[in-house]
């Protein structure tokens, strides 16, 4: 199956994260039409009800908008996408820093480690 899910949280939440990250990364482009619930469900290998629920939740954030009778579109509000991007960066960094602090690394040590890693 195409999309990977873990056992811990509800699948619709994991779908949320995956779709939002696709929007942030630009895999799904601003203003573009999103595939139908059924096609997305088949692609992800999940129940259409679950996909429907996930999409409804994302609509709540404003990242997706529904045009009646014409499916869902990715928002054209680039600023909003930017905000989600920023939030993603902050959350990922905080998660990384949390792990490093648990190993008692100071900020300077962490920075020197990062600068030594080839990216």
């Amino acid at each position: 199956m195409a999309w990977e899910f873990n056992g811990k949280s509800p699948i619709f939440k994991q779908i949320n994260d995956i779709i939002i990250s696709k929007i942030i990364k630009g895999d799904y482009k601003s203003g573009e039409k999103l595939a139908s619930v059924r096609d997305l469900a088949v692609e992800a290998g999940v129940n259409p009800n679950t996909m429907q629920r996930a999409l409804s939740e994302i609509e709540g954030t404003g990242l997706l908008t529904t045009l009646r009778g014409d499916g869902r579109y990715i928002t054209e509000d680039k600023e909003l996408i930017g905000k989600f991007r920023q939030r993603f960066i902050e959350e990922s960094t905080a998660e990384f820093l949390g792990k490093m602090r648990a190993l008692d690394f100071s900020k300077d040590e962490i920075i020197s480690i990062i600068s030594k890693i080839n990216m």
Partner: peptide, 9 residues
Amino acid sequence: VDNLREKTG
């Protein structure tokens, strides 16, 4: 399924 996962983790 979603409820069950949410309730039980």
